[in-house]
């Protein structure tokens, strides 16, 4: 079995980077200075992370939230008011649907920025591109245009699929798709499956389906017809998923979300190692990950947790 430590979604945007971005947005520094300073900060952080993980995302440093790049870019969308992101004290600008949704490049620049930094590092570090899933996106936006949620979800699936295709053309081998609403009591599985199929048919890169903040509310078998290569699950807030996942027949690789991205308490290496060990008979490849994006904890804690992930996965290899 191969074990790798990997990031999921975002690494917390450090305060210094936030201030830098604010200054740039407010016109207090020019683009050249901004880019130079931003790249230096990103390089510093990615260097630190890369000591312990072998796969990162673009860290979503340039994204204010999971939907912001798309509200800024896709035709038919605008940024609206602040809404709570799931049950967190973290807020996103709600995408307001005001017209027919059409794809325009949204995340290529941030992906490319991180890729160019990674190229300059020693050793191998894989990068995943991140996208919100079409189901979660359509449910978490403010639809003022489409007559039905189904039509909206299918157009979002189409546009996000185009985005994935562009990312793939530009070197993304894995697309991490965030569908936290798979853990919602009110999940409409029919719509989820239809939109996911429409989305995933647009490109051929590997798909990492990421869920968080609870157990997947449907039978895992319901996902078996979908083109999923890695299933990322939350084992912090839904420990019970562990037995379910061990019991399923599938060819998935597993994203073991065992690091609590909403708590400052550090996990023990031995407990992480124990979890990994239990999956060894079932999965050929396991990624040890946080249970969600890491925006909710301080940078210092995120780094300490990533350290534990690195040690746990290395210990296992030995």
């Amino acid at each position: 079995m191969i074990v790798k430590a990997a990031l999921v979604g975002s690494f917390p945007r450090p305060f210094k980077v936030g201030r830098l971005m604010s200054k740039y947005r407010d016109g207090k520094i020019d683009e050249e200075t901004y880019e130079k300073k931003l790249n230096a900060e990103l390089m510093k952080i990615i260097k630190k992370i890369s000591k312990d993980v072998s796969m990162i995302t673009d860290c979503m440093f340039l994204w204010d939230d999971l939907f912001e790049p798309f509200s800024n870019s896709f035709e038919g969308l605008e940024k609206g008011g602040l809404y709570r992101f799931l049950d967190n004290n973290f807020y996103y600008r709600i995408p307001v649907v005001k017209g027919l949704i059409r794809h325009m490049d949204a995340t290529l620049a941030s992906f490319e920025k991180v890729r160019s930094i990674v190229r300059g590092l020693r050793g191998k570090l894989d990068i995943k591109a991140v996208l919100p899933g079409p189901y979660t996106f359509s449910k978490m936006c403010d639809n003022r245009y489409y007559s039905s949620l189904e039509r909206l979800a299918m157009d979002i699936a189409e546009a996000l699929g185009e985005e994935a295709r562009e990312l793939e053309k530009n070197g993304a081998e894995i697309i991490e798709v965030h569908e936290p609403l798979l853990t919602s009591e009110e999940i409409d599985m029919g719509l989820f499956i239809d939109s996911f199929k429409a989305f995933s048919s647009k490109f051929s890169a590997k798909i990492w389906l990421q869920t968080y903040f609870g157990p997947i509310k449907t039978k895992l078998e319901d996902l078996s017809d979908l083109r999923i290569n890695v299933l990322g699950i939350d084992l912090v807030e839904a420990e019970e998923q562990f037995d379910r996942v061990l019991g399923i027949k599938s060819t998935w690789e597993l994203g073991l979300g065992a690091i609590n991205s909403r708590s400052t308490k550090l996990e023990s290496v031995s407990s992480l190692r124990c979890l990994i060990k239990k999956t060894s008979k079932k999965f050929s490849k396991v990624y040890l990950t946080p249970n969600a994006m890491m925006d909710f904890i301080p940078v210092s804690i995120a780094l300490a947790k990533i350290r534990k992930m690195g040690i746990a996965s290395r210990v296992f290899k030995k």
Partner: peptide
């Protein structure tokens, strides 16, 4: 307190422990 965490956009607060 640890270092500040982001709450939205570039707004941060020092989340206590």
């Amino acid at each position: 307190f640890y270092d500040p965490i982001r709450i939205w956009g570039n707004a941060y607060y020092r989340k206590p422990a």
